[in-house]
Every structure is written in C-alpha cells, then in structure tokens.
Amino acid sequence: MSTPQACNAYLRPLRDAMDVLGGKWKIPIIMLLSIKERRFKEIQREIGVTAKVLSAELKDLESHELVRRTVYDTVPISVEYALTDYGRTLERVIGEIREWGVHHRERILERAEPLPAAAHQH
C-alpha cells in the first residue's frame, strides 16, 4: 500500500461491510434471525428497539439481500422476517467478532484495578 489509491482500494471492501453492518441494531437483528424466523413485534420486543428504527433497519438489511420479508395473507396480515442464504454467510463472521469481544472483555476486566475499600462503604 505505497499509494493513497492502493490504501483506499484495500480499505473500500471494509468500508462497504461496515456501511451494511454498522450501527447499534443490525448485528443483533441478524443474530436473532439466525436462530429462527420472527415477526416484527417479536424482533422489536427481543432486542428493545423502537418500531421506526426497526423498520428502517429491516428495510436496509432487505435492500442488501440479507433479510427476506414474507407477507402472509391472514387477518390481520402477518409478516415474518428471516435471513436469506446470503445473510447466513455473516453468521461465521459475526461469531468471530463476538469471540473477539469475549476475549477483549476478559482482557479489559483483568487489567481493571479493583476499587479501593473506601469506595465500597456507604
């Protein structure tokens, strides 16, 4: 990576991935849907996100072909969301990120100094 262009070309795929997966909610949505299909309200309840934000995140994930939306002709209409086969390709990647997070948390907690005894008194 001797030139800015080479560096940019190297980083572009990483930026693309972060654009698709970035934010607070996309990875939790993907992990939840990796377990089983879910209805909108189930996803909302299980990850604790507002309907407006969840709707936007699901639309974005659907536009990237990671999530499939299925509408059932029931009364009232029901909609289920599931990972696509392409979306399932992220399970291993996200699992690896999670494992890194586990080890990172352990490392940080090991480094943390215990609170002085006076801090525990009320």
Rank of each mutant, 00 (worst) to 15 (best):
E57S: 06
H104A: 09
A119W: 08
L66T: 00
V53K: 07
Q121L: 08
P28V: 04
R98E: 01
P28T: 07
I43N: 00
P4V: 12
G48M: 01
L32Q: 03
I43L: 04
A112Q: 10
K52N: 03
E91R: 15
E65Y: 04
Q5I: 13
P116Q: 10
I43A: 00
A119N: 03
H64K: 12
R12Y: 04
Y81W: 05
I77L: 12
I77F: 07
S55L: 03
I77H: 13
Y10G: 06
I94R: 05
L109N: 09
D60Y: 12
Y81Q: 03
Y86F: 11
E80K: 05
W25N: 02
N8F: 14
Y10K: 15
Y72V: 03
L58Q: 01
Q121I: 09
T70F: 10
Y86C: 14
R98S: 01
E91D: 13
H120Q: 03
K36W: 00
C7W: 14
R92A: 11
E99V: 02
C7L: 14
M18I: 06
D16Q: 15
E42I: 07
P114G: 09
G87D: 03
P116R: 10
A51P: 01
E96I: 15
G87V: 13
R98M: 08
K36M: 00
V93C: 06
S34T: 02
E106T: 15
T70M: 07
D60R: 14
T74Q: 12
R45T: 06
W25M: 01
E62W: 09
A82N: 08
W100R: 15
R107M: 08
E110P: 11
R111D: 04
K52D: 00
T84G: 11
H103R: 15
E99Q: 15
V79I: 10
L90Q: 04
S2Y: 08
P114M: 03
G22C: 07
L61P: 10
D60V: 08
W25A: 04
G23H: 10
K36I: 00
R92Q: 09
G87H: 12
A6M: 13
R68D: 03
H64S: 02
E37H: 11
T70I: 10
S2N: 14
P116L: 07
A117I: 08
F40D: 00
K36C: 00
R98W: 03
E113C: 10
V49N: 00
R69S: 01
L83N: 04
H122A: 07
R68V: 05
I77T: 15
I94S: 10
S63Y: 02
L58H: 05
S34V: 00
A56T: 02
I94P: 14
D16H: 13
G22T: 06
L66S: 04
L109Y: 07
Q5R: 15
L32Y: 02
V71G: 07
E57G: 06
R68K: 11
E113T: 11
K36Y: 01
I77N: 06
V67P: 08
Y86R: 15
A82Q: 06
E80N: 03
Q5S: 13
G101S: 12
G101T: 13
L83Q: 08
P4M: 05
V79W: 09
D85C: 12
L109A: 11
Y10N: 11
L14Q: 05
H104N: 12
A6I: 12
R98L: 03
I35Q: 03
R88N: 06
N8Y: 11
S78W: 13
E91T: 15
E46F: 08
P28D: 00
